[in-house]
């Protein structure tokens, strides 16, 4: 078994673990974290594909590598947006499993 294959199996496990949390966790923040796990697993998949495609004098296929870099940044943007949405939802008083929102003074009329 090559290291690339081993990390491929690890990527599959990461996706499965993340999916488990994404489905089962009632709290939105935990869902966001779980979703990031699925993302990390997917990126690792690409990394394995890149490592296998090492030809033409490159250490790895640069196309999947570049896509993973793009993906990591987009995943961060999605996480930040999701977290902002979640905090706003709590501030507006929507009941969730995360409990009542904190009382930010600046939101009081």
């Amino acid at each position: 078994m090559t290291p690339a294959t081993l990390y491929g199996l690890c990527a599959a496990a990461l996706v499965a673990i993340g999916l488990f949390g994404l489905i089962l966790h009632p709290s939105p923040l935990r869902k966001v974290i779980s979703f990031n796990l699925v993302g990390s697993g997917t990126f690792l998949f690409f990394g394995v594909a890149a490592r296998r495609g090492a030809v033409a004098g490159f250490l790895g296929d640069p196309v999947p590598q570049a896509m993973v870099i793009t993906g990591i940044v987009v995943a961060f943007a999605a996480t930040a947006l999701a977290v902002a949405l979640l905090l706003r939802m709590l501030e507006s008083g929507a009941p969730t499993v995360d409990g009542p929102p904190e009382q930010p003074d600046d939101l009081s009329p």
Partner: peptide, 13 residues
């Protein structure tokens, strides 16, 4: 791991 897979750009990110 990205370092191990020789993808230094990704490891930095």
């Amino acid at each position: 791991v990205w370092m191990r897979l020789l993808a230094v750009d990704v490891a930095l990110t």
